[in-house]
């Protein structure tokens, strides 16, 4: 598609896409259904273009990206089951909107990891920034280190597991899904949440509006034990459960069209 204009010298096409003529990188090594390439000298568009070409068209189901070098928006919008491994640390908005991939990251990541994730698994060996799992709708998002503020803000489903501690406003306006926090939680945990459950093993600095301790059930035990087992996270610690007190928001009074926004 031809470029249609430019701003500040950056060409873009009718989709608002910069670098309209980006070319596939020439340094991809393919071995059967596996591929790997070094992203150190590639642009964001080239990296994502290579991932889509390999996964969608070339029948590759396992891709390793070396040296992501904190570049933003990597592996966004991949809608197919596959394995992607980042050898290093992606930047902001990594793995946003994915539906199916199982991603491993052996470094750390910036803001908004797995934003709007639909399904799949993302596992980070180190820490992640603020807004991890923002508006996540499904799948498992696991960060073995600490995460920043507003983890799982507007969460609509899925499971966020944090091996360390979380910052302020974790679970803010959470609507569905679950968070499992093995460390401490900052101020205003679960503020204005509609539904869902937050499990915390450490100390909670303060609860947000309408977030209250919840009743532990056998289903909670089964769920946590299963998630720790399937993701090889060892033996789970003892958690306290927090839920919505249902005093601020009330599902039952919502119109059907409003209800759909929170399921």
């Amino acid at each position: 598609m031809a470029s249609v204009g430019s701003r500040s010298g950056v060409a873009y096409d009718a989709r608002g896409l910069v670098e309209p003529h980006a070319e596939m990188p020439g340094n991809i090594e393919i071995d059967g259904v596996r591929a790997r390439f070094d992203a150190a000298d590639l642009s964001i568009r080239q990296i994502n273009m290579a991932l889509r070409q390999l996964i969608y068209k070339d029948g590759i189901s396992d891709v390793t990206v070396l040296n992501p070098a904190s570049k933003h928006s990597l592996a966004v919008g991949i809608l197919k089951r596959c394995r992607i491994h980042f050898e290093g640390s992606p930047g902001w908005f990594a793995c946003g909107l994915i539906d199916g991939p199982e991603v491993t990251i052996n470094g750390r990541v910036g803001w908004s990891l797995g934003e709007n994730m639909m399904s799949g698994v993302v596992m980070v060996e180190r820490s992640a920034g603020s807004l991890t799992g923002a508006a996540i709708r499904g799948g498992d998002l696991i960060v073995k280190g600490d995460v920043g503020a507003r983890t799982g803000i507007d969460q609509k489903g899925g499971t966020i597991i944090v091996g360390g501690s979380v910052g302020i406003n974790t679970g803010f306006m959470m609507q569905r899904g679950r968070q499992i926090i093995c460390g401490n939680a900052g101020e205003n945990l679960g503020d204005s949440m509609y539904d869902g459950a937050i499990y915390v093993a450490g100390k909670v600095k303060s609860l947000g509006v309408d977030c209250v301790p919840g009743e532990w059930t056998d289903a909670d035990t089964e769920f946590i034990n299963r998630k720790f087992r399937v993701h090889n996270l060892g033996a789970p610690p003892t958690f306290e459960k927090f839920v919505c007190g249902k005093q601020l928001h009330n599902y039952d009074s919502l119109e059907p069209s409003e209800r759909k926004l929170v399921i």
């Binding site: 799948g139 489903g157 899925g158 899904g177 993701h231």
Partner: peptide, 12 residues
Amino acid sequence: ATPGPDINWLED
């Protein structure tokens, strides 16, 4: 039909 080792997104 789902990614990962359990039913993943279908949990919800």
